[in-house]
């Protein structure tokens, strides 16, 4: 299905808002299923979905464990003597946190189903100032650069004979702090070069800018946006009423 980037943005915002509102695993799971179905509809390859989620796995596991331990309640499932370790409430909170992150990440992936050119066009046609539209588009584009830079630095450290997996946790954080600067520096250098290159071609010469192409919202776009917005508002309203 071919939809306008603005339609996809509205969808992503609707899905993430619901994810932030919902706090039970069953609803969040349904939401995740809907998001993934949507991604597949936009020809997003399931392997790529997995690829995006994979780096967050250890973080999610960590959050799951922390949340399970620190939000006790309900039936005790596992205890060490008098201290409850795993409770039903804890498990459900842990699962909710993880699912929420997954929904937000997956809906953010909707942004990768269109080009940054279309993204900019969409925003500009919605009267967003063009400097701002470019800034957002570039920030999104730089996320993979950050990731690659991270991989480069980690590889460089490993080439020096340090195996990250074997470094104890305490030392690891100290090391990551040292790695942080080359990564940020590398990304800033790239951003700077990009700024030079863009200005060398007259970017921001005038307060206005024109475009070779234009995007047009079609009926499918209006229908989808209407559907998503009304469904989201209804669900949100229902949630508030119940509470």
């Amino acid at each position: 299905m071919k939809l306008d980037p603005r339609t996809k943005m509205v969808m992503a915002i609707c899905l993430s808002s619901l994810a932030l509102l919902y706090d039970t695993p069953d609803r969040l799971l349904l939401l995740l299923a809907a998001t993934v179905a949507l991604l597949l509809l936009f020809r997003f390859n399931p392997g790529a979905v997995w690829g995006y989620l994979k780096p967050f796995l250890s973080l999610m596991l960590f959050l799951f464990v922390i949340q399970s331990i620190f939000s006790p309640g309900g039936a005790v499932l596992l205890a060490a003597g008098p201290v409850p370790l795993v409770t039903s409430q804890g498990l459900s909170t842990g699962a909710s946190v993880v699912l929420r992150i997954m929904v937000v990440t997956a809906s953010a992936m909707l942004f990768t189903t269109f080009s940054s050119r279309d993204f900019i066009l969409g925003l500009v046609q919605w009267k967003v100032p063009y400097e701002l539209a470019f800034m957002v588009a570039i920030a999104i584009r730089f996320l993979p650069v950050f990731r690659d830079e991270m991989i480069n630095v980690v590889t460089a450290v490993q080439l020096r004979g340090v195996e990250l997996k074997k470094v104890p946790w305490g030392k690891k954080t100290a090391m990551y702090r040292r790695l942080f600067f080359p990564i940020v520096f590398g990304a800033m250098l790239k951003a700077q070069q990009l700024a030079v290159a863009m200005e060398a071609r007259g970017f921001r010469a005038y307060p206005r800018r024109t475009y070779l192409r234009r995007l047009d919202l079609r009926r499918a776009d209006y229908m989808s946006m209407l559907l998503f917005l009304s469904a989201t508002l209804t669900l949100m309203g229902a949630d508030v009423m119940v509470k």
Binding site: L194, V196, A197, R201, G202, Y206, R208, L212, R213
Partner: peptide, 24 residues
């Protein structure tokens, strides 16, 4: 490498005249 930033060659070439506010 430090001066190309668009997703297609055509967009790369269109970038400058777009900055000049020329009509499409």
């Amino acid at each position: 490498d430090t001066q190309l930033f668009s997703q297609t060659v055509e967009d790369e070439i269109a970038f400058a005249p777009e900055n000049l506010c020329l009509p499409p």
